[in-house]
Structure formats: C-alpha cells, structure tokens
Design a protein around this nucleic acid. Sequence first.
DNA 1: ATATTGTAGATTAATTCAGTCAACAATATT
DNA 2: AATATTGTTGACTGAATTAATCTACAATAT
Lengths: 148, 148
Amino acid sequence: MKISTRARYGTRALLDLALHQAEAPVSLKDIAKRQEISLQYLEHLVTPLITAGMVRSVRGPKGGITLAKSPAKITMSEIIQLLEGSTALVECVDNPKLCPRADSCVTRDIWTEVKDAVNGVLDSTTLQNLIEREEKKRKTPKQEMYYI
Amino acid sequence: MKISTRARYGTRALLDLALHQAEAPVSLKDIAKRQEISLQYLEHLVTPLITAGMVRSVRGPKGGITLAKSPAKITMSEIIQLLEGSTALVECVDNPKLCPRADSCVTRDIWTEVKDAVNGVLDSTTLQNLIEREEKKRKTPKQEMYYI
DNA sequence: ATATTGTAGATTAATTCAGTCAACAATATT
DNA sequence: AATATTGTTGACTGAATTAATCTACAATAT
C-alpha cells in the first residue's frame, strides 16, 4: 500500500520547480541535483506532466521546464493522478464491473470511503499551499515546546 | 498504491466469519468456498490473525475458527494493520529517521495527513458496522431512484 | 558548428506478492 | 486405538511490477 517513488519524486520535483522558477526555465539537471534524484529517472517522471500540460519544456542550452499553470491551480490530486493513477486502494472502486460482487459488497463501500478521504486531503492541497508551508517552516524551524 | 489481496481477502474472510459464527467454529474450507479464496492461501491469511488474538482456532474434525472478540470491538484499522501493516503511503511517515529531509519536508506532512484521513475511516468502521450494512443492503437491494 | 538540454524507447535488475506444495500437529468420532 | 478431518508452518515458484540505466535522437542558444 505504498505510493510509488515515481509519485513521490514527481511531487518533490514539482515543488522544487515551483520554488525555483522565476523567469527562466529550470533545468532538470538542477532539480535532479537538489532533490537527489537520478537525472535519467527524473526525465521519465516529467514526461507525463508535460503531456498533460501541467509543465512546459524548453529544449537546448538554457532550456528546462516551467510550470504551465500557477502553483495555486495545481493540486496534489492532479499530480498523483498523473504519476500514480487513481487513489483507489482496490480496483473495483473505480471499476465495479471487475467483480460480480461489487454491488452487494460492503467492504467495497469502505474502500470507496477511504478513497474519498484520501482525495479530500489531496484535492485541498495545492503547490501554493506547499510553498507556504515551506516558508513557514523556514521561519520557525524546529519549534520547541516550553512548559512553564 | 493498491492494497494487497491479502488484506482484501482477509477482511472479507473476517466478515464472512462474523456473519456465520453461531456456537460452532466456522471451518476455513467453508469460508474459502463462500468467498472464492484458495483454501491454502486463506490459511496463511488467518495465521497472523490468530497470533494477534483476534481469532481463535480449533483443530480437528468440526474444528475451525471463531472471533475472539465481539464484532463491535474489531475495527478495520486493526485488520488492515495486521494484514497489510501501516497505512502510511510513504515509509518516512512512520520512520522519520529514514530520510534526512524528514523534518523539513512539507510533502511528508501531506502524506501524514493522508494517513490520518485513511485511519479516520478505518478506525471508525467495525465488523459490526459491516454486518449492519450487509443487512441493510439485503433489505433494500439495489434501490432505484424515481423522479416525479 | 557545437555544446547543451529535453524526448523516447528498450532493457535490466531487484523486489514483492499471490499462490502452491508438502510435511506436520491436534482432536472428534468410530 | 485408528482414522479422518481440520488447522499450522515453512519452503518454494512464477508472475508482475517497478526503479533505474543505456542508448540514440531532437531542438536550440551561443
């Protein structure tokens, strides 16, 4: 029940991109270096993001990638959808026809609730949110608790 | 990001058990037949449930398994924990020490929220709940919607 | 013209997982 | 006591998935 490194790396890469993009595109090389991801693997992660129109790419020297939309308009839900597929933990949640029991299966109902719960979190989290959390963490790093 | 068949089969097996247990233990053979699970595979699923004290077993003729606790006291959370392990989608959620970035990683925070959301559903669903849903479904099967 | 950067397909190596095989242990029934 | 029935356990296999690399190619700034 783990998420693929594909989705993990991809999310981190996008956040890295969001944090570093100004005018110029950000090179995959730089992202790979900062995020400690193999460049060649990162290239493959980025492909579906470009295809989906979430990211734009520029070839050649000084090339790289940029976000095609504002970070506030990119949800983790979309990212995970592109890199991992559905968040359903069980196939039959998305495809009732896969199982003859689907209609009457109460455990399937629970798996559906779980999917909705997961999506609830991912839908409401945008890249912008992540950026803000990042900034907040840098301001108050490792806050200790003091009891009087 | 799928859950293992282990956990799916196990959950269904436990619900089947809860529905069919009266006085006598229910044989794995019967559960396997009703749930269309290979008997040999089911045996392996049941082992950790017995070890954990959720299920009791009786060997020999007329033997089988019984729930060791009332269905109202068995949550899906426990079941999944036993058969699948943690519901964390990423290792570092449970083990921050695995990653040097863990403390400062905002994506990890989101994965933690996701885990909590999943557990929210699973914690609040007991075998008893499933039984009741099952009964409800049998009473009002495939309710159609009529618009006037 | 060339170095730099992204694109894409093929391939490999490792891991995980579902499922089976086989030998064993306990016990109700006869 | 003998036997059939049922659960227990460990080893093993085959398939599928996945992370990651290799290779050749395409575009473009300088």
